[in-house]
Design a protein around this nucleic acid. Structure first.
Lengths: 242, 242
DNA sequence: GACGACAAAATTGTTAACGATTAATGTGCC
DNA sequence: GGCACATTAATCGTTAACAATTTTGTCGTC
């Protein structure tokens, strides 16, 4: 919690109380550290230019977060996430984001509703134009806006952590054929419900949306493997979520 | 995740990779470390008989969990939880435990259903007998059983962490007049739905139950303060949740 | 008596070194 | 050639010491 709110102040090197955790998290999300990879404390220390003690602490946090596993005296490994686990995580996200959508519907101010409508319009335009990247980015923005409006600090915190576990698959889902179109429709339904102040409907639509993501995950499994695995040339792309 | 599964193997002192985190967590839950209290690394190290480095790592994990706050160069403090935050946490728990209840209804085996029915009967008997302590304990057992049956590892992990944040208030809620009776009725409704395999109803009843807990939290706020604050003579009682 | 500068103490953040445990390698024997 | 066993290397876990920062306490002045 508190770790989320204290902004990176000066990037002053080796003033890394907890912010190293985020750096490693991002490295995993971006595919610089691959699933199953053995993480040696000394290597990470030199890689991130911090003390080994700091690395040790960060690894414990990441272990507690489920991003890595640690065996006594055997070191840490990036934890591979199976599709079935990604499904489970998405099921969990569904109910939590559903809660946020409901709260957002209750609490959104006039300005916030207008903002949501604007985002929705831009997203639909992007899909019409066939701009998948813009869709991805806007989709994430919509989710984020709803979470902010909901003002449920604890829920947002949990969601932030869950995100990093399933990033790998979110990449792939967004690239499935026909996915942007369907996603955009679902997002519109969510936005409309929130803007209309219908909490129950907002929750329902959000959950429907994420259940459709789960369906896409199963498709992924059926059609064998991942599209656009991180580590490939396009790993520079920003984090996007379906 | 992995941290949950590796059992305390030999209690061999100073073999504390992560298990120290749980010990500090429990100390906070039991009121040995009070909200707002300043946590000095050296003191904790001698208190738990571990190295300061281990304490440092544990504090970072607890900070990430939201149980304590850490200011640079100023140390750590046990994070006080306001009633409004406890409400927020319970709202979050409601949707997650709702998910677990639904999954449990889908997945419970015949044996598990029988076990749930047994627990329910014992809980109602305890309430009839006016045994508040037994009710508390059985209530927690029911919740735990449903979580196990649901087999949603990620959700259970999140719930386990959320629990520690609001323990303080859960104590008080269970002591509100008339609370055991109402809680038992709600638990029965949940169990019946799960046993009947009605996922939607199970989720609905679980959420209703926790919304009723939220109502009790507001009552607590209205009637001013906490009953049975930890640190009082009865702090030896096991953790109980409404 | 209150306020501010200064010094001392306490605490955190960092680094380096040591011992312990585990995996990997090499050797001898069957 | 393959397997049991000792040796070596790599890595983790711990401890102690040092540096940097904050807090506390003291003194002098207004």
């Amino acid at each position: 919690m508190s770790s989320r709110f204290e902004q990176a102040q000066s990037e002053s090197r080796s003033q890394t109380p907890v912010d190293l955790v985020d750096r490693v998290r991002l490295a995993i999300a971006h595919g610089e550290l691959l699933p199953g990879q053995h993480l040696v404390e000394n290597d990470l220390a030199t890689m991130f230019d911090v003390s080994r003690g700091a690395v040790r602490s960060a690894l414990m946090v990441l272990d507690s977060d489920g991003l890595i596993t640690r065996s006594p005296n055997r070191g840490a490994r990036v934890r591979p996430i199976s599709i079935s686990e990604a499904v489970e995580i998405t099921e969990l996200r569904a109910v939590i984001e559903g809660l946020c959508a409901a709260k957002a519907a209750q609490r959104a101010t006039a300005g916030e509703r207008a903002e949501l409508r604007g985002l929705d319009a831009r997203m639909r335009a992007a899909v019409e134009a066939g701009d998948t990247t813009a869709y991805s980015s806007l989709s994430e923005t919509v989710h984020q806006a709803i979470r902010e409006i909901a003002a449920q600090a604890t829920a947002v915190d949990v969601l932030d952590r869950l995100r990093y576990r399933s990033v790998r698959y979110q990449f792939s889902v967004a690239r499935l054929p026909g996915r942007p179109r369907q996603g955009a429709d679902e997002h519109s339904a969510i936005v409309n419900a929130v803007v209309a102040g219908k909490a129950d409907k907002a929750e329902y639509e959000m959950r429907s949306h994420l259940e459709s993501v789960i369906g896409a995950l199963y498709d992924l499994q059926a059609h064998g493997g991942l599209y656009g695995v991180p580590g490939s040339p396009e790993r520079a792309a920003p984090l996007n979520f379906s």
